[in-house]
Simulated assay, not measured.
Amino acid sequence: MRFGFIGSFGSPAQHVRLARECEEHGWDGFFTWDGVSLDEPGFDVATWDPFALLAAVAAVTERITLGAMVFAPPRRRPWELAQQVLTVDHLSGGRLVLPVGMGVPSDRAFSSVAGQPASLRDRARALDEVLDWMERSWSGEVFEHDGEWAATGPFRFPEPPVHGRVPVWPVGVWDAQSPPRRSLDRALRWDGMVVQVRGGETPEDAEPGTDDLRSLSAWIAEHRSPDAGPFDIVHQGRLDADPDVAREQAAEAAAAGATWWMESWWDPSTTPESLLDRVRQGPPTL
């Protein structure tokens, strides 16, 4: 299992420093987040462009995986997203991954802009279309697209991603009693899944337990073709300050099928300084 760290709070300069310290202290990835203007009580924090931040981080790191938890393609123009992805992918030498979701309706980039997909269903359809458009742009061929949310004439991106494609990890909802096929089938089509459980009202409530991870891993093994390539199961959590307890937490998640642990602190009382202290403790050794 690999360990990523989410830069949930701080200025652009603090994010870049945090990422450099992630690389120095043994973490496997640094992830920012993607929001514009959030109408969230108690969460009135500055937001930054994730691709600009990741470009800066790519220029000062050499090893760690880069991404955001999570990108919101439904509120982005697909041709602009494709260009941003391609730029950071090449700048980082192919270290970018794309955790993606439908975006939160409390982001005013949805609610305050006419014509944006607003309902959950519309945002889900827009997500699929934008991802399809971006994937077609990786072919190097001229293509056109006639869809509901993205209808374009000829486009061509002559330079493909460094490794031919950029891994895409959609957010997927898991419910062992009644697996939501639309969400799960989207994840199965791509390269991984950021796991949430049904009914969570906060990021912490949506985190799966080890039983959830275990049953999801078994379901994926049953429904995904073995020749489809590697598939990442991405789990968000918070490691204990005690190294022995943290090692046990990570070992349990890995045994249940998680391939990434994302260290995730969203409490508004979190400070950039506390994130830096946590990064310097390093991830557990399994």
Results as ranks from 00 to 15, higher is better:
Arg238Asn: 05
Asp185Ala: 15
Phe110Val: 00
Ser217Trp: 08
His223Asp: 01
Asp146Ala: 10
His90Arg: 11
Ser106Lys: 08
Ile6Val: 15
Asp212Pro: 05
Val70Gly: 07
Leu213Ile: 00
Pro179Asp: 08
Pro50Asp: 04
Thr259His: 02
Gly147Leu: 12
Glu144Pro: 08
Ala206Glu: 15
Ser178Phe: 06
Arg182Pro: 06
Val130Arg: 12
Glu222Val: 00
Pro12Lys: 09
Glu159Ala: 13
Ser139Cys: 09
Asp34His: 04
Asp240Met: 05
Asp49Asn: 15
Gly103Tyr: 02
Ala258Met: 07
Leu275Ile: 07
Trp33Lys: 03
Asp267Glu: 15
Trp27Met: 04
Gly192Tyr: 01
Cys22Ala: 09
Gly229Leu: 04
Leu66Val: 02
Glu201Leu: 12
Gly257Tyr: 12
Arg125Ala: 12
Ala46Asn: 05
Val197Met: 07
Met262Pro: 03
Gly192Met: 10
His15Gln: 01
Val279Gly: 00
Pro268Asp: 03
Arg121Ser: 12
Leu276Pro: 01
Gly140Gln: 06
Glu135Arg: 13
Pro180Ser: 12
Phe110Asp: 03
Arg182Gly: 10
Pro50Ala: 06
Arg181Thr: 13
Arg77Ile: 05
Glu148Gln: 13
Val36Lys: 04
Glu21His: 04
Arg224Gly: 05
Leu66Ala: 07
Ala250Tyr: 09
Thr152Leu: 14
Ser215His: 10
Ser119Gly: 14
Gln177Asp: 15
Gly147Trp: 01
Ser178Pro: 03
Ala114Gln: 13
Asp242Ala: 12
His25Phe: 13
Arg121Gly: 14
Thr61Pro: 00
Trp27Glu: 03
Trp133Ile: 05
Ser8Lys: 02
Leu286Lys: 11
Arg77Met: 05
Pro158Lys: 08
Arg189Asp: 04
Gln14Met: 09
Gln177Arg: 13
Ala150Asp: 14
Phe43Ile: 06
Arg76Ala: 03
Phe155Asn: 11
Val88Ser: 08
Gly257Trp: 09
Pro99His: 08
Ser119Ile: 01
Arg247Trp: 08
Trp33Ile: 07
Phe51Lys: 05
Ala59Tyr: 01
Glu62Thr: 14
Asp146Phe: 05
Arg63Pro: 03
Ala241His: 12
Gly101Phe: 08
Phe5Thr: 02
His235Ala: 12
Glu141Phe: 04
Leu213Thr: 00
Trp174Asn: 04
His223Asn: 14
Val113Gln: 14
Val130Met: 06
Trp138Tyr: 15
Arg156His: 11
Trp133Pro: 01
Ala241Phe: 06
Asp28Pro: 07
Trp79Ala: 15
Ala251Ile: 08
Arg76Asn: 03
Gln281Glu: 09
Met69Phe: 11
Asp146Thr: 09
Arg2Asn: 11
Glu141Pro: 01
Gly115Ile: 11
Ser269Asn: 08
Asp49Thr: 10
Ser183Met: 06
Val97Asp: 06
Val57Thr: 02
Trp265Asn: 03
Trp138Ser: 01
Pro12Trp: 04
Glu201Ala: 11
Gly42His: 00
Glu263Val: 03
Gly35Arg: 14
Phe231Gln: 03
Ala52Asp: 13
Ala46Arg: 11
Pro268Trp: 04
Glu148Val: 09
Asp191Val: 07
Gly229Asn: 06
Pro180Asn: 13
Leu213Lys: 01
Val45Gln: 09
Ala246Thr: 06
His25Lys: 04
Leu18Val: 00
Arg76Lys: 07
Pro78Phe: 14
Pro243Asn: 10
